[in-house]
Amino acid sequence: MDASTRPDFAAPPYRSVSPARTGAMVLRYLYLLKGSWPRVVDLVYWPTVQMLMWGFLQLYLSDKSGYFAQIGGTFIGAILLWDILFRSQLGFSISFMEEMWSRNMGHLMVTPLRPSEFAAALMAMSVIRLAIGLVPVSIMAVAFFGFNLWGLGLALVAFFVNLFLTSWAIGLAVSGLILRYGLGAEGLAWSATFLLLPLTAVYYPVSVLPEWLQWISLALAPTYVFEGMRALMIDHTFHAGMMVKALALNLLYFGLGFFAFLRLFDAGRRAGSILQLGE
Rank of each mutant, 00 (worst) to 15 (best):
F159G: 09
L251C: 14
P7V: 15
R87M: 14
T200R: 00
R87Y: 14
D83W: 11
T22V: 04
R180H: 09
Q276V: 13
F56K: 06
A69Q: 11
A143R: 13
A219N: 05
E279P: 05
V161E: 02
L195Y: 09
S191I: 09
S4E: 13
A221R: 01
Q89F: 14
V49F: 15
L196M: 12
G278K: 10
R21P: 04
S4N: 12
L32S: 11
F96G: 02
A131Y: 05
M109C: 08
A173N: 05
T111R: 06
S4Y: 10
S191H: 13
H236R: 12
L43I: 10
R269M: 08
M125V: 06
V208W: 00
G184Y: 01
I234Y: 11
R230H: 12
M140S: 07
V142M: 10
G153E: 07
F159M: 14
V225N: 00
L90E: 10
Y67L: 06
R180C: 06
V244L: 15
G241H: 09
L275D: 08
A219H: 03
A221E: 04
L108C: 09
L220T: 08
P136D: 03
F261V: 00
L256M: 09
L177D: 00
Q214P: 04
R21L: 15
G182R: 05
L209E: 01
L177Y: 02
